[in-house]
């Protein structure tokens, strides 16, 4: 039972990171019907920007706790802003000029942008793994494994708490933003009928740019969380994380915001439980098999809206 709880905690943590990235996929898909394959790499860039600032300001676990928290918040804000600028730039140079061309064209430039970002980071930062000393060591021990040490010790680390809390807060904030603000309404309007939205005075190009900016900002949060949790990044992390998050978005129903969060959580849990109980090597196979099975029975994903055609 203790083992199960430990896997649950790990799975929710991983799922939170996937969920944050998946939101970027699902929002962009919702608004322009395109899979932004460079999104995983935006997440990677976010992680690198965070690492650069952490190293540059020599933020370590040895700092007083209040200062450390402040420093991390500072790093988060700066990396969100810079990553958002990256997201905006990618949209501006790789996708906007192709708006109105055939559907596959931006897909190809998305793959191009992804490769370009990877190679840029590889060349500018080097191809080796970049380690980071744990910034938030320690945690709660929920179960010490019994007096004789025969049981399983369940650990809930502070960094896991941080990840789950930050993700939860961002997702709530984000849902409110989409549902309650004028900007969110404009985004949903563009999602349904871009031409009509622009006839009502909405600057569609700007709304799309803002969607990319928001997605990139969330991905950069995920990047920082990934960095804090695993303590090691390289220029290639964006690929697998991106594919997983994309899977999560499809699993939850692409275009649906709660779907992306749910999908991320599920993919994270499946992966962790599979590697916990069966084999680590086949965790990706398990995740993708579940995707295939779900899509056979629910082609629109778990929370996606089925397309109803009026006859």
């Amino acid at each position: 039972m203790e083992y199960f709880f430990q896997q649950l905690i790990n799975g929710v943590t991983l799922g939170s990171i996937y969920g944050l990235i998946a939101i970027g996929y699902t929002m962009v898909y919702g608004i322009i019907g395109m899979i932004n394959f460079a999104h995983g790499d935006i997440f990677m860039v976010g992680a690198f920007i965070a690492l650069i600032f952490i190293v540059a300001f020599s933020i370590t676990a040895a700092m007083p706790i209040a200062l450390l928290v402040l420093a991390l918040i500072g790093v988060l804000i700066v990396s969100m802003a810079l990553t958002a600028a990256w997201g905006w730039t990618v949209e501006r140079i790789a996708y906007r000029p192709l708006r109105g061309s055939f559907r596959l064209a931006p897909l190809i430039t998305a793959i191009g942008a992804s490769i370009a970002l990877q190679n840029f980071v590889q060349i500018s930062q080097g191809a080796r793994n970049k380690p980071l000393q744990p910034l938030i060591p320690g945690g709660f021990s929920l179960s010490d494994g019994g007096a004789d040490g025969s049981g399983f010790a369940v650990q809930l680390s502070y960094s896991q708490i941080l990840i789950i809390v930050v993700t939860l807060a961002l997702m709530i904030g984000f849902t409110l933003l989409i549902n309650k603000t004028s900007l969110g309404r404009a985004q949903r309007a563009c999602e349904q009928d871009r031409k009509m939205a622009s006839l009502l005075g909405i600057n569609v190009d700007r709304t799309i740019s803002l969607t990319f900016v928001m997605g990139a900002a969330l991905a950069s949060v995920a990047g920082l969380m990934f960095l804090l949790y695993y303590g090691v990044i390289d220029f290639y992390i964006g690929f697998l994380a991106g594919v997983k998050a994309f899977t999560a978005a499809v699993l939850g129903g692409i275009g649906s915001l709660p779907g992306a969060m749910l999908g991320g959580l599920l993919i994270g849990l499946i992966e962790t439980f599979w590697s916990g109980y069966f084999s680590v090597e086949y965790k990706d196979v398990a995740a993708f098999s579940i995707l295939a099975i779900v899509l056979i029975f629910m082609p629109e994903g778990l929370l996606g809206k089925p397309e109803v055609e009026k006859v």
Binding site: L177, T181, S182, L183, R185, A186, R188, A189, Q192, D193, K195, M196, A197, L200, G201, I202, K305
Partner: peptide
């Protein structure tokens, strides 16, 4: 007819007032 079918009536009418609202909200 080109309404935003998935949005409520009220939201449809609010979308049409996007610009003044954006200015008033200091761009969100």
């Amino acid at each position: 007819i080109r309404l935003f079918g998935g949005m409520t009536l009220l939201e449809n009418l609010m979308v049409a007032q996007h610009n003044p609202l954006m200015v008033a909200s200091g761009y969100t």
